[in-house]
């Protein structure tokens, strides 16, 4: 129990950083209705870019901004694959993710690049949990405020309309392809930004950092929805995704305390997400819900 309490601040800190990632996932998964798997790659790209720039003498803020911009670009490519080449969304994301693996290696030059909190001025670090929590909360608040403002603009509304009903959107003169590209780009930008923070937190950028990121992001979004419901304003729903991520990391901490070997974590994540995604079907009685038809 004591060990768990000791682990709690770390879970909150990790949850907050992954919560930023979950905000990015929310934009594709919920706003655009697009299951984007590029995030596994772009999360890592963000870390690689931020760490390499900082090792090269850059300040943390511009390094994170460039990480965000590379994420934008990665997401834009997924959007292009989907809207121009008509590649199904899931596959478009997988292609970008796979391609990014090589790019991430090229950016880092090797599979792992350490960055020491003693030598560099990092925004967050697991050595300074309290600072990490405060900085992350500020970033979360700023990002939610910016997104709230953006999705209230004409372009933001057009992206929401595209996610809600592409027929309606096109009939109202909205370039739905462009909206999808912008939305997926923005999402990956945020994910890469979170990746940049996470690498600092861990003290290294690792080529495997993003593996399964989409599952954690989805888990966060869905846990937030299951616990707090979906009848909230847009800003609140983003916030519940962040809280969902924190809860997710607390669950992980508990399970680790109970003695689960850490090599089983990914299996646990997959099961958690399957359970939470399946909750509506489970509530209605398994098997009575017809599988969704492909679109």
């Amino acid at each position: 129990m004591l060990a768990l309490l000791n682990a709690l601040p770390g879970s909150v800190a990790q949850g907050l950083i992954w919560g930023i990632m979950a905000i990015g996932v929310y934009i594709t998964y919920r706003v655009l209705d697009f299951a984007d798997l590029s995030v596994d790659g772009s999360f890592c790209t963000g870390g690689a870019v931020a760490v390499m720039l900082m090792l090269g003498g850059w300040n943390v803020v511009p390094a994170l901004i460039v990480a965000f911009l590379t994420g934008l670009l990665a997401g834009y490519i997924t959007g292009l694959l989907h809207t121009y080449l008509k590649i199904p969304g899931i596959l478009a994301g997988i292609l970008t993710q796979l391609g990014l693996y090589s790019i991430n290696l090229a950016i880092m030059g090797k599979a792992n690049q350490a960055i020491s909190v003693d030598k560099y001025n990092l925004a967050v670090s697991l050595r300074y949990i309290n600072k990490t929590i405060i900085v992350s909360i500020i970033i979360v608040v700023v990002i939610i405020a910016l997104l709230y403002a953006f999705f209230g603009t004409e372009i933001g509304s057009a992206i929401r309309a595209t996610g809600a009903n592409q027929n309606m959107a096109r009939a109202q003169g909205i370039n739905t392809g462009r909206c999808i590209r912008m939305g997926v780009a923005l999402s990956n930008g945020i994910v890469a930004f979170a990746g940049g923070l996470y690498a600092q937190y861990q003290g290294n950028a690792d080529v495997n950092a993003g593996r399964g990121a989409i599952v954690i992001g989805l888990a966060a979004v869905i846990i937030g929805e299951v616990i707090f419901g979906t009848k909230h304003s847009f800003a609140t729903k983003l916030a519940t995704s962040v809280v969902g991520a924190i809860i997710y990391y607390i669950i992980i901490a508990i399970v680790l305390q109970l003695g689960l070997p850490s090599s089983y974590l990914k299996l646990l994540s997959a099961c958690l997400v399957a359970i939470f995604l399946g909750l509506p079907a489970i509530k209605n009685g398994i098997g009575t819900v017809k599988p969704d038809k492909e679109d």
């Binding site: 004409e154 057009a158 009903n165 309606m168 003169g173």
Partner: peptide, 30 residues
């Protein structure tokens, strides 16, 4: 179902329609 965005409010749907054929920018959506 096809002509409106179900997850958006009545006024938001109308605001989308009010911008049909106009360039959409960073001005308020409504």
């Amino acid at each position: 179902m096809m002509g409106t965005a179900a997850t958006m409010q009545i006024d938001e749907n109308l605001a989308i329609a009010a911008r049909r054929g106009k360039a959409r920018g960073l001005k308020p959506g409504i």
